[in-house]
């Protein structure tokens, strides 16, 4: 009987011996490099001679706003107050907040996780449907491994691939940042205001990981959805096309339907958890972080169950 670890090795072999996989990695590295280059170019173009003067000016303007507009709501008031405190801290410590450090590049690379998701969705959609397209499904299933085990092996391999792309993305941004802004920036602290209203200096590494973390939730959901679609279709091009369509149309659709309250039960408005971070508003006012997490958990279980049902219960004919 097959052991799961051997099945995972098989799936890995089928992923990494395909030239396509390495083109994807190359594409990701290229995109990170391009983005970093543009950031650097943009910085050199808009560099202001005196950042201290501009911060002071900003603070004065914000203080004026706070005084003059009495009808300002509590949230905005707090936000402005925080900005002023942060700016003061930067001025007193003589740290230019607009100067790009190595971590600025890493943090910006978190926005490229959508690309990582896209690439992994392509791989996931191909995972089961591809076997049908190649005609190898019959040989794959006629062996001492249950379909559940085969599917689990495929899912784990897909997730490991996603992890690999995330590490590549992170590392590429770190290296690009190091080259463009100097590796001495590695120790730059993360300056933020805690809930206690005091300025803290935290680890930039942890802050970046957190930023990645939110996006990884989205990645896992889309990839699991693509995996389910893959087990529904018997053609990999159909599975890939349909998965990408869901991913791209989903957000637009939920934006269009935001007027209806039932839209919050769709997966798309819940998938981006950064909407609950500071300075962002969720699609519907009644949505909370807990609600979204619960919805995502339900969708996750349903996706897995449907994928399992489609893969293990259907007859393989033709």
């Amino acid at each position: 009987m097959s052991s799961l670890s051997q099945l995972i090795r098989n799936e890995n072999m089928k992923i990494y011996f395909r030239p396509r996989t390495w083109l994807m990695v190359l594409f990701l590295v290229g995109t990170v490099a391009l983005m970093s280059g543009i950031m650097k170019w943009d910085e050199s173009r808009s560099e202001t001679a005196d950042w201290r003067a501009s911060l002071t000016q900003q603070n004065e303007k914000m203080a004026l706003d706070l005084q003059s507009s009495a009808d300002m709501d509590e949230g905005s008031r707090e936000y402005l107050q925080e900005r002023i405190t942060l700016n003061d801290y930067h001025l007193s410590q003589n740290i230019n907040p607009d100067k790009l450090t190595l971590w600025s590049y890493v943090n910006s690379s978190a926005s490229l996780i959508i690309l990582v998701t896209l690439l992994t969705v392509v791989v996931a959609a191909d995972m089961i449907a591809g076997e049908f397209t190649w005609g190898t499904i019959k040989l794959l299933l006629v062996g001492p491994a249950s379909r559940t085990k085969i599917m689990l092996g495929k899912y784990i391999s897909t997730m490991v691939f996603a992890l690999l792309l995330l590490i590549v993305c992170f590392a590429a941004a770190l290296i690009a940042g190091g080259i463009l802004a100097g590796f001495d920036g590695l120790n730059t602290p993360d300056i933020y205001m805690g809930s206690d209203g005091i300025i803290h200096e935290g680890s930039m590494f942890l802050a970046s990981i957190e930023k990645y973390g939110y996006n990884v939730v989205m990645l896992v959901m889309y990839v699991t959805m693509a995996f389910m679609i893959s087990s529904a279709f018997r053609s990999s091009s159909m599975a890939i096309a349909f998965s990408l369509l869901c991913m791209l149309v989903g957000n637009t659709l939920s934006g269009l339907l935001s007027g209806y309250s039932w839209v919050k039960y769709l997966i798309f408005p819940n998938i981006d958890l950064t909407q609950y971070m500071e300075g962002a508003t969720p699609l519907r006012p009644e949505m909370t972080l807990g609600f979204s997490i619960a919805m995502l958990a339900i969708y996750y279980v349903v996706f897995q169950f449907v994928a399992w049902l489609l893969f293990t219960k259907r007859d393989v004919a033709g």
Binding site: M13, G143, P144
Partner: peptide, 8 residues
């Protein structure tokens, strides 16, 4: 190798 791995 792929097919052999399934068997012990």
């Amino acid at each position: 190798v792929h097919f052999a791995r399934r068997h012990s």
